[in-house]
């Protein structure tokens, strides 16, 4: 039963990944103005366009190009950037473009996750333990406010207070890759803080709601009537049953940190992967767009898969079949 569930989820994950690749391929194919056009720009003649297209393999049927691309992806060959802001980036392997950006993104995600997950889980649990208390109302109200406002507002506000008025931190987080120690920390502080605030609010609310939902089940009432203390009810009886949904929301937030942070990256000029993709879209660098999109979707699918596994493993029905 457990194996079957794991296998089923794996199969679904792979299938979704394939579907995603098709969608991405079709999506990027309909972008108007292909690379050849952009490279040649004003000087394009029909002949030179055709020549360049055949050189780049753009004249072959779509499905062949799809399978070639998929095969390259699967073997880790992300291809070669076909356009760029200047001659220097044309012809650069995509992996070289992506690597530093991915490092930056993952670094930020890791820092945010390390701070946000324990923080939001404990505050969410505290709120659920004392529903209606002053602490709970403060948490509920604050998180409601924070998930309701756009993240650029949170970012702007932080810049205003911490960078402009108090002059504690730099307003941008541009890093060249050579920063170390305190300088790096300072550069990352504002975007990290923004993302911690945004992600924690979501996780906190979900933790509170899920735990409260579990707390309304008859077996919790039974535990109350058995004289089990509140702390134990939450930590032993409720939390085990709330693992599934909570892990799921954490996974969604992590996926968002990898892919959805383009606004934060823009506000702070942080060289992350999302910003790279936006730039790639503007320069019609299709292989780069495709590669970034695949990374984002794969991250999402992988994280959701891990979350699914966690909730399957936390379910005794699957762990201990009859």
């Amino acid at each position: 039963m457990l194996m079957a569930a794991v296998l089923r989820r794996t199969a679904v994950g792979i299938l979704t990944m394939l579907l995603v690749s098709i969608l991405i391929f079709i999506g990027t194919s309909v972008l108007p103005g292909d690379v050849a056009n952009i490279i040649l720009g004003q000087m394009a003649t029909p002949e030179s366009l055709a020549e360049l297209r055949s050189k780049l393999g753009l004249d072959r049927p779509a499905y062949i190009r799809y399978f070639m691309w998929l095969g390259d992806m699967a073997t880790g060959d992300l291809g070669i950037s076909k356009a760029g802001s200047g001659a220097a980036t044309i012809g650069t392997p995509i992996s070289e473009l992506i690597a530093p950006r991915l490092t930056n993104t993952l670094r930020m995600t890791a820092i945010v996750a390390i701070i946000a997950i324990p923080l939001s889980l404990s505050l969410g649990l505290l709120a659920a333990m004392y529903p209606g208390s002053r602490l709970d109302r403060a948490i509920t109200f604050t998180t409601l406010g924070l998930i309701s406002v756009p993240e650029f507002l949170v970012a702007t506000f932080l810049v205003l207070v911490l960078a402009v008025h108090m002059d504690l931190l730099p307003a941008t987080a541009y890093i060249s890759g050579r920063e170390t120690g305190l300088k790096l920390l300072k550069a990352l502080a504002l975007p990290t803080l923004t993302l911690v605030i945004v992600a924690s609010s979501q996780i906190m609310r979900m933790t509170r709601a899920t735990v409260l939902n579990v707390l309304s089940s008859p077996y919790i009432e039974m535990a109350i009537l058995k004289g089990v203390p509140r702390k134990r009810i939450i930590l032993r009886h409720a939390l085990f049953n709330a693992v599934g949904p909570i892990v799921n929301v954490i996974a969604l937030n992590l996926a968002y940190l990898v892919s959805g942070v383009v606004i934060v990256e823009t506000v702070f000029s942080y060289p992350g992967l999302a910003k790279l993709m936006v730039d790639a879209v503007q320069t019609r660098d299709l292989p780069l767009v495709q590669a970034c999109a695949m990374i984002f979707c794969a991250t999402y699918i992988l994280l959701i898969f891990i979350a699914d596994m966690a909730s399957i493993l936390s379910n005794p029905r699957l762990r201990h079949p009859k």
């Binding site: 299938l15 579907l19 995603v20 969608l23 990027t28 959805g260 993709m277 503007q282 767009v289 999402y300």
Partner: peptide
């Protein structure tokens, strides 16, 4: 459901950006 899963797996804001900068 599978197609929907695939769409859901794409980050919404990136999807919006790509399409709008295209068309």
């Amino acid at each position: 459901s599978r197609v929907n899963d695939a769409i859901l797996s794409m980050p919404t804001i990136m999807l919006g950006l790509v399409v709008i900068s295209a068309i």
